[in-house]
Computed example of a mutant assay.
Amino acid sequence: MKLISWNIDSLNAALTGTSERAGETRAVLKKIAAATPDVFAIQETKLRTDPTKKHREALAEIFPDYEYVWRSSEEPARKSYAGTMYLYKKDYQPKVTYPTIGAPSTMDQEGRIITLEFPDFYVTEVYTPNSGNGLKRLAERQIWDDKYREYLTGLSKDKPVMASGDFNVAHEPIDLAHPNSNHHSAGFTDEEREHFTKLLAAGFTDSFRKLYPDKAGAYSWWAQRAVTSKQNNSGWRIDYWLVSDRIADKIQESTMVDTGKRRDHAPIELKIDL
């Protein structure tokens, strides 16, 4: 089974935009379509509500053999913010749920989690809240991390889980280019890293690190505003495919999809024999 996950940073821009960056993003979408994943998870769709007719036509053109489901941010949360989507091959008929986890503030209304239930396993995606500038959302983020861990372990008690997404944390110093200067930055605080450690300890395996325990310089995000971030490989690994420990031996590959010169997130791919 092949699964791909990507924080796209605006599906709307990717499908309807005319900028050079929109063109780069569409090229990556076409590359993903050509790879024919069984399931494709998208985070940070930034759709205002439902996909428009123009969005649907563009998706049908790029992914003609796929069904899709989505979850957009809704009031009292901001519109056109966060949001998630799944595309999956039409041969599949998963049960789709849009869970709330008792998160603080408006986090449960920001469209951050979708779960697909298959007969023998779950596939779920998350767009974890960023702690923000000045770590203003760090306290709420820690509550989110606890609630999300409870949710994921609940799923895993029922069936094996494959969980992907932008987790907004670089777990260990090896997971970012400049750990010493980012110790108090969102995504690399002690608190965020500790919560990710707790998540793994609750019964989950970081698929990339299982295969490549000592590989440095492998990142999934480069700052879009820093023109040389990707040229210098000054990146972070903050996107993950996690799997329940009991199916970790089924992992065949876990890697990043090359996006050329496009900065921001790279898609991540998991191949697993179920």
Score class of each variant (00 low, 15 high):
Thr124Glu: 03
Leu211Ala: 04
Pro160Gly: 04
Asp108Glu: 04
Ala35Gln: 11
Ser72Arg: 06
Lys2Thr: 12
Tyr68Met: 05
Lys230Tyr: 05
Tyr86Trp: 14
Gly260Ala: 11
Lys250Glu: 04
Arg78Asp: 14
Phe63Asp: 13
Ala202Gly: 13
Pro104Met: 01
Trp221Thr: 01
Asn7Trp: 10
Ser181Cys: 02
Ala34Ser: 15
Ile238Ala: 08
Asn180Asp: 12
Ser181Val: 07
Glu110Thr: 00
Trp6Thr: 05
Tyr148Met: 09
Ser220Gly: 05
Ala170His: 14
Asn133Arg: 15
Gln224Thr: 05
Ala177Glu: 03
Ile251Pro: 01
Gln93Ser: 08
Tyr122Gly: 02
Lys147Asn: 14
Asp9Glu: 15
Thr189His: 13
Asn232Leu: 14
Thr52Ile: 00
Tyr151Gln: 10
Lys147Ser: 03
Glu125Trp: 00
Glu140Ala: 14
Val161Asp: 02
Thr124Ser: 10
Phe188Met: 09
Pro119Lys: 08
Arg225Glu: 13
Ala77Phe: 13
Asn168Ala: 02
His55Val: 05
Asp175Asn: 02
Ile268Trp: 11
Glu192Ile: 04
Glu140Gln: 15
Ala186Asn: 08
Ser80Gln: 10
Ile42Leu: 15
Tyr212Glu: 13
Trp241Thr: 05
Gln231His: 12
Asp190Leu: 07
Glu74Arg: 14
Phe63Cys: 10
Asn12Ser: 01
Val227Lys: 15
Asn180Met: 05
Trp6Arg: 10
Met85Phe: 09
Ser73Leu: 13
Leu87Trp: 07
Gly154Asn: 14
Arg26Gly: 01
Glu74Pro: 02
Lys261Trp: 07
Asn133Asp: 12
Ser254Gln: 08
Leu155Cys: 00
Ala60Leu: 02
Arg78His: 13
Arg141Tyr: 00
Ala186Arg: 07
Met107Thr: 00
Lys54Gln: 09
Tyr127Glu: 04
Thr16Asp: 00
Thr18Ile: 13
His178Arg: 10
Pro160Lys: 03
Lys30His: 07
Pro129His: 04
Trp6Glu: 08
Asp175Thr: 03
Leu211Asn: 08
Pro76Thr: 06
Lys230Asp: 07
Pro94Met: 14
Pro267Leu: 04
Glu269Phe: 01
Ser156Trp: 00
Pro129Met: 08
Arg237Lys: 09
Asp190Glu: 15
Val169Arg: 09
Glu269Asp: 05
Asp273Ala: 06
Lys53Gln: 05
Lys261Leu: 09
Arg78Trp: 12
Gly17Tyr: 11
Ile143Leu: 04
Ile114Tyr: 14
Lys215Arg: 15
Ser220Arg: 07
Ala248Gln: 08
Glu74Met: 09
Val96Ile: 14
Ser72Gly: 01
Gly187Ile: 11
Tyr122Asp: 07
Thr16Ala: 03
Ala103Pro: 04
Gly235Asp: 06
Ala226Pro: 00
Leu152Tyr: 07
Asn182Cys: 00
Arg112Ile: 05
Met256Ile: 12
Lys2Cys: 02
Ala82Glu: 10
Ile247Arg: 02
Arg26Cys: 07
Glu191Thr: 00
His55Met: 01
Pro99Thr: 05
Gln252Leu: 11
Lys159Gly: 06
Leu155Gln: 06
Thr228Lys: 15
Asp249His: 13
Ala186Glu: 03
Leu3Trp: 08
Gly23Lys: 15
Gln109Gly: 01
Thr106Ser: 08
Ser156His: 11
Pro37Val: 09
His183Leu: 12
Asp175Ile: 01
Thr16Asn: 15
Leu47His: 01
Val28Ile: 15
Leu47Thr: 01
Ala177Ser: 02
Tyr92Pro: 05
Glu125His: 06
Asp214Ile: 06
